[in-house]
């Protein structure tokens, strides 16, 4: 039987590198969700009131709901293009364990859609009059939380690939599963803004990240195979 000589880490790296290179050729994938994030955050002061005390109260919720929606928006593109041009089929035929390659692909997706949200967060924090000391915790919680969202979302994105109405359905599937992330992420931010140490929620987010990184690639692999049927 033909054997493969490319090691598993190398194969995973190649999948990651290809997606990064593609993103550098086409920036929209990276910039659109961030722009959406910034605009959603802008809506709240306009809709409620520009009073700093109020903004400070709602800031954790606004940042986290905005991040959740932006991450959801970016998920649509995770597998869609690969399905349409046939590269997803080839990925399953590479002879390497599919779950590993999809783990790498999800990681690339996080680097391109989750990380920019983390980087943009201080801007929003400043706009919502959040205290400067809280920004570190906010970014850390977003980094962990958007990671979990990418992993949970990858299952949803793969499941809705073969269906007719993709994007709304994707939200219906992913949002209930994402609620714990929202609770702990907003709580960590809230605690940090009150000047408290937010260790508890941050550790929980880390635990969720590890768990979702372990289990979701397997579910995503199963879902991708269903979508190719």
């Amino acid at each position: 039987m033909t054997t493969l000589t490319t090691s598993l880490p190398r194969a995973a790296w190649l999948v990651l590198e290809r997606d990064l290179r593609l993103a550098f050729r086409r920036w929209e994938q990276v910039t659109h969700p961030v722009m959406f994030f910034l605009m959603v955050a802008t809506l709240f002061p306009l809709a409620l009131s520009p009073e700093p005390a109020l903004l400070r109260t709602i800031a954790p919720g606004v940042v986290w709901v905005g991040a959740l929606l932006s991450a959801l928006l970016a998920l649509e593109s995770l597998f869609r293009a690969d399905l349409e041009d046939g590269t997803l089929e080839q990925l399953t035929l590479s002879g390497q364990p599919l779950a590993w390659l999809l783990l790498a692909k999800t990681l690339a997706h996080w680097l391109l859609s989750g990380l920019p949200l983390v980087v943009a967060a201080p801007l929003i924090a400043a706009g919502l009059a959040a205290p400067g000391e809280a920004v570190g915790t906010l970014m850390l919680s977003l980094a962990l939380g958007t990671g979990v969202l990418s992993f949970i979302g990858s299952v949803g994105a793969a499941l809705t690939l073969g269906s007719r109405r993709g994007s709304v359905l994707l939200s219906l599937l992913v949002l209930p599963l994402a609620m714990p992330v929202l609770i702990f992420g907003a709580r960590a931010t809230d605690q940090a803004m009150r000047g408290e140490v937010a260790d508890g929620p941050l550790w929980l987010l880390a635990a969720m990240l590890i768990l979702s990184a372990t289990l979701s690639p397997l579910a995503t692999a199963a879902a991708v195979r269903v979508s190719l049927e």
Binding site: M1, T3, L4, R18, D85, T87, E89, L93, S94
Partner: peptide, 21 residues
């Protein structure tokens, strides 16, 4: 399945190439 996949090459209707690369 992975062993079998390693032994085969498949050319589908789509070319499985990224248009930007």
């Amino acid at each position: 399945r992975d062993g079998y996949a390693a032994a085969l090459a498949y050319l589908g209707h789509e070319n499985a190439m990224k248009a930007d690369l």
